[in-house]
Design a protein around this nucleic acid. Structure first.
Length: 257
DNA sequence: ATGTCGGAATTATTCCGA
């Protein structure tokens, strides 16, 4: 089984790119973030024609998350309880007994901004919410754009960004607390010493200059993590393809036994 | 160059968020 997460930065703007990727990579279950559409605006027919069932939790203009699967899926949860005011940022689907959640963590903007403490509270709420699946020993995936750079190796410029957004102790402590609830960062587990990024700013030629961050993760409970055979960041799909503009994020893909 | 995108508001230009 192949699972993946991808912040597409606008599913309407990215539709041809996403369809190309689905055809090429053939994932079985996918979490998408930053749809930037209402549920009604989601290009459901095109995704279904590509062989996927889809559940969405969207809103106008910003945020929005979806789960795609080649087998039937049912919605378990829409929205992070208590955090709905921060936008449509979480959806959980049951896919053949796998509890698959995808999230789009608030950016936080900067450490002096009002959104920063709200971001920290959001991560706390996510950890609290996600704890049950791990504690109960369920097969669960928690994936998406976490907007946190967990460790120095995950940043192109740890020294320069010390104490800055995505790199603060407050964010890292909370992300670690989430992992401590029973989730494994499967990319890091497979590649303990590999520096690899999942996001590059559109500005300043960041991708070409290797100025990236690893902020998109596939987290898994123990029973799922034990099935991971390989996990990679799909950098090819951060590149322009057939004149199609890429998202600023690359997909993260894992193959499970 | 804080240099690019996507989307909205408003009608090709400016803003906002990331």
């Amino acid at each position: 089984m192949r699972i993946a997460t991808w912040n597409v930065n606008g599913v309407r703007a990215r539709l041809d790119f996403v369809l190309h990727w689905l055809r090429e990579r053939q994932p079985d279950v996918v979490g998408l973030q930053e749809l930037k559409v209402t549920d009604e605006q989601f290009p459901r027919a095109e995704i279904e024609a590509a062989g996927y069932q889809v559940v969405t939790h969207g809103q106008k203009s910003w945020n929005g998350v979806a789960v795609l699967a080649r087998e039937p899926l049912t919605v378990v949860q829409e929205g992070l309880p208590g955090q709905e005011d921060f936008g449509a940022r979480l959806i959980t689907a049951d896919v053949g007994g796998l509890e698959f959640t995808t999230i789009y963590c608030p950016n936080g903007k900067s450490i002096g901004h009002d959104d920063f403490p709200r971001k920290l509270a959001w991560i706390d709420a996510l950890a609290e919410h996600a704890a049950a699946a791990a504690a109960d020993g369920r097969a669960a995936v928690l994936c998406g754009d976490f907007n946190v750079c967990p460790a120095a190796i995950d940043s192109w410029n740890e020294a320069g960004f010390a104490g800055a957004i995505f790199h603060t102790d407050e964010e890292r402590t909370r992300f670690q607390a989430l992992l401590d609830r029973g989730y494994i960062d499967v990319f890091r587990a497979q590649h303990p010493d590999l520096q690899a990024f999942s996001w590059w700013d559109y500005r300043g030629g960041a991708f070409h200059r290797k100025h990236g961050l690893r902020i998109d993760f596939l987290l898994a409970t123990a029973s799922v993590a034990a099935r991971v055979r390989s996990v990679e960041i799909d950098r090819e799909y951060r590149k322009k393809k057939d004149e199609l503009v890429a998202s600023d994020h690359a997909p993260v893909i894992a193959d499970l036994d």
